[in-house]
């Protein structure tokens, strides 16, 4: 086992444990904090995949903005932070079945995919991946349409937020 694999396994384990705690912990703020740990673990995984830009974006957007948004939302909506009710409701077996089926399906689909065993081609050295990404985002023969649509999507999110928050004065 190479050190890189060891780091991967530790990070993956941490991410999974944290994700599990997000669901099981009874304190909502703790759940949000465990979510931060999960997201940080994912950022480390991005680094291991040689995608530093995505790793940094993961921290900036998910930890810096979305986790903060979650914590604000929790503080707004609930006065009582500690949930005393049952954690499972009557439909738990159906949810478990669906999750199991989804997991099984994904497992079955990816089982035969050779991407797991094949060694990825090394990245061409000396190439500025960020610059290449930037070019790809705005080049007409690449991803300019998704890029602009992303902008419209963000606009829609903003308008939606305005609508939710809007009060007749």
């Amino acid at each position: 086992m190479t050190p890189l694999q060891l780091v991967f396994l530790l990070t993956a384990a941490l991410t999974l444990v944290a994700a599990f705690r997000v669901v099981t912990t009874r304190n909502l703020v703790h759940a949000a904090l465990w979510l931060v740990v999960t997201l940080f673990g994912v950022a480390v995984l991005f680094v291991l995949l040689n995608a530093p830009f995505l790793a940094v974006v993961q921290v900036v957007v998910y930890i810096g903005a979305i986790a903060v948004l979650f914590i604000f939302a929790i503080m707004l909506t609930r006065r009582e932070m500690r949930d005393q009710g049952a954690q499972l409701n009557k439909g738990w077996w159906a949810a478990a079945l669906v999750s199991l089926l989804t997991f099984g399906g994904l497992f079955w689909l990816t089982r035969s995919w050779d991407g797991f065993t094949r060694t990825a081609a090394p990245l061409p050295t000396g190439q500025d991946t960020l610059s290449a990404l930037g070019k790809a985002l705005v080049s007409p023969d690449a991803f300019v349409l998704p890029f602009e649509i992303a902008s419209v999507l963000l606009l829609a999110a903003l308008v939606g937020a305005v609508y939710v928050a809007y009060r007749e004065k």
């Binding site: 974006v57 957007v61 903005a65 948004l69 960020l130 610059s131 990404l133 930037g134 937020a161 928050a165």
Partner: peptide
Amino acid sequence: AQYYIFTLVFLVFDVETVFLFPWAVAL
């Protein structure tokens, strides 16, 4: 509620600027 709303607006612009960084590098 205003704290939440400002964070929501912030989130939208944060995601936007993240998109702009590769563009700025390649400009």
